[in-house]
Design a protein around this nucleic acid. Structure first.
Lengths: 191, 191
DNA sequence: AGCCTTTCTTATCCTACATCAATTTTTCGC
DNA sequence: GCGAAAAATTGATGTAGGATAAGAAAGGCT
């Protein structure tokens, strides 16, 4: 793996050349086409993934067949079912590519070893996790407090680049409403 | 601080006597009465708290004045606004005692120092955070998929001891429904 | 015990969003 | 560029849970 890419992945942390190369040896490049599934509900989750290019979404399908998008991931994001990744439980969600995508994956096993070799890395990922939790938290609180129209506006404001890239039915699924409702909301917002 | 209590707080981890006493020196006992507020929205969050006795809840109040309970904490739980605690941002939520409570608090500053002195402790708290995220995640996914009646049943099943201890309006606020709706649901469940 | 406050229940009506059912518009392979 | 499939829109109707307004129980406190 080249150093340029590694510096990109771990840009916030400052690792030595030796450390980067130790980490780099654990990352494996994966190319996926639009529509391909990275992780299926029920799977054991051995990896977390850094998104280098493309777009994915994590989602659950409930008993009544409704699809709920939990998160989109674009360049520079890490994505996995972290709950399952950390606990060893079966995945509660699925993850699919909604565009052609290039990922770098890191296994839980390698990660645990890396934590021992490079303590700074535990801090790096702990901070990632904290940030992710914060974002998820904010989103959940928003969902509680806001009607659908405001949730949509908040989404567009927070993730303009994602809003451009994904289908309306994915946005609707993220907002927890039907495409019909989203369509009506967008109409209203045009006055 | 006595060793018995410290062993209780850090029961899952195995720390040496010296480590425990280092940590113990950072914990401060706090007694609070029912109704007292531990943390107010907007505060800077300098502490996380281990619950030794009693019950607290974290909550947000939205623009329309509605109260949303995010989490209850009983004996053996840690509670704080972790987002704010870790990022340094102002608290997004408030935390209040709904029973007389005894806590042991740990400051972010001491925690960061302890991470350096006792690396195992970072692992201990990372695992706590992972578990918390998993629980919160599960709950959120449940909320997406389930109607109020099932959410209530799931709550009763998951937290029977909490269900006994707290008022119906707190449960309703946790489930994201009105007390009236909860009342109807409970009636239905009696056949 | 009796009074006052807090909590819980019940009934009626209402609203945001879902569901169902057509279209219309966009996208994309050939 | 054309036709089929996918995506988005629009309209009519349904429903879970909210809002409002009483009233009934259940705790305290003196």
């Amino acid at each position: 793996m080249d150093t340029g890419l590694l510096n990109e992945v771990f840009q916030e942390a400052s690792f030595s050349r030796a450390e980067l190369s130790t980490v780099g040896a654990c990352l494996k490049k994966i190319d996926l086409k639009k529509g391909e599934v990275l992780l299926r509900k029920g799977d054991t989750v051995a990896y977390t993934h850094y998104v280098h290019r493309g777009c994915l979404r994590s989602f659950v399908v409930d008993e009544s067949g409704k699809d709920h998008t939990l998160q989109f991931a674009i360049k520079d994001w890490w994505i996995s079912d972290y709950t399952a990744f950390f606990t060893g439980d079966a995945a509660m969600m699925s993850i699919e590519c909604i565009q052609n995508t290039t990922l770098y994956r890191l296994s839980r096993k390698d990660m645990e070893q890396l934590y021992l070799d490079i303590p700074k890395l535990e801090t790096f990922f702990r901070k990632k996790l904290e940030k992710r939790m914060a974002a998820f938290h904010r989103r959940t609180l928003g969902n509680l407090a806001m009607p659908a129209k405001e949730r949509y506006q908040a989404f567009v404001k927070t993730y303009p680049s994602i809003e451009q890239q994904v289908k309306n039915y994915h946005i609707a699924s993220y907002l927890g409403i039907t495409t019909e409702s989203l369509s009506r909301i967008r109409k209203e917002l045009l006055h």
